[in-house]
Design a protein around this nucleic acid. Sequence first.
DNA 1: TAGATTGTTAATCGATTAACAATC
DNA 2: TAGATTGTTAATCGATTAACAATC
Lengths: 216, 216
Amino acid sequence: MTQRKKVSEAVIKRLPRYYRHLSQLLEGNIDRISSNELASRMHITASQVRQDLNNFGGFGQQGYGYNVKMLHAEIGNILGLGQELSCVLIGAGNLGHAVANYANFERRGFKIKGIFDNNPAIIDTKINGLTVQTVDDLIPFIQKNQIKIAMLTIPAVSVKELIDDIIEAGIKGIWNFSYLDMEVPADVALVNVHLSDSLMTLAYKLNEIEYLKKNQ
Amino acid sequence: MTQRKKVSEAVIKRLPRYYRHLSQLLEGNIDRISSNELASRMHITASQVRQDLNNFGGFGQQGYGYNVKMLHAEIGNILGLGQELSCVLIGAGNLGHAVANYANFERRGFKIKGIFDNNPAIIDTKINGLTVQTVDDLIPFIQKNQIKIAMLTIPAVSVKELIDDIIEAGIKGIWNFSYLDMEVPADVALVNVHLSDSLMTLAYKLNEIEYLKKNQ
DNA sequence: TAGATTGTTAATCGATTAACAATC
DNA sequence: TAGATTGTTAATCGATTAACAATC
């Protein structure tokens, strides 16, 4: 565990981007990078790079910059990658299928241990090697396998029914795709992916650009 | 077109949430709401609600609050919903399937007119009533049908190859799921959905909570 | 050593919150 | 009218950027 003080949401959201760009540098066999170069690749300022990193420690060296390999490892560590995180996927519809088959997640340590749905037509089918189970078996499964993360790709109404129970069963992190602003206890981590919201901001931006064009 | 001045990204991202909560109020047959009530439902401050809305106009009435139906319509209008937006979906893998089948988008005006992939095994199959076409036919399709939005559910390398061409062909909005920080001209709207990044922030938050617990 | 570049403090900028006069 | 609640200005808070001494 590397973090010390409360780190702002803005910084946390940039961490995976740092990690991604450092991965690319690593692939390109680049040994060192200055805050300036890294910043220009990411379209942010060098100041911001240094401020962000110094939330977690002084990883650089004056006159030299940052060692790519070392910084990559440090940020991976800060993000808590590498360690295996056991997950359940709740909802085996189209989005659930996409999540279940996304190999990238497993590479980062997220291991889906069980897939659940309440649609009889889907139960007992196989997705990426796992048999879809009925939601009735979800709670004992979480307890027995000490699952820490739930990926929710079911409708909002179903989430409302399940959420208290899965948290009580031991879920500590929720990756929520449902169209719902939920509240969770302070010791449970929640990250929302609201695809509809995201698409609506695209509509807004399209309009804005068109509007600006019309008025010179 | 309702917007006047430059509205901050933070506000834009909250607009779909306002819209969503107002939809719920509407469904619940609630006629009016104060900034205070709306704020507490959304877990933000009443001040923020009033500041946000006043970026676009004075939609409320002193002593009364906001008319739900009217405010809902206004925000829908600000977001540019209702009008039909023609889209192409590029990438018919698992994520592409999920996007193509997500009825919610069509309800908001996003109409997928064509689906493209470069995998021969997928070309000519049907997804949600549309036949998957080869990527070779993409550019003429965009031009002929005056498509404005591209939804990218293909790998980053493929995006790099396509991006300049589709913009030249007339694409004005990009909804990008690929693991790539791309640059687009100022008159093209870009919204990224980086699922891996999102999941990594969940890992971070899990670690943080555990860390805080250990140190009291 | 001289040059480069960090870590960090200070300045600026922008977003959020508070306060209150206007007004329905 | 009195009470409620907005619209809006001012105050605060936090995040970003600039500057520069420390140092490799």
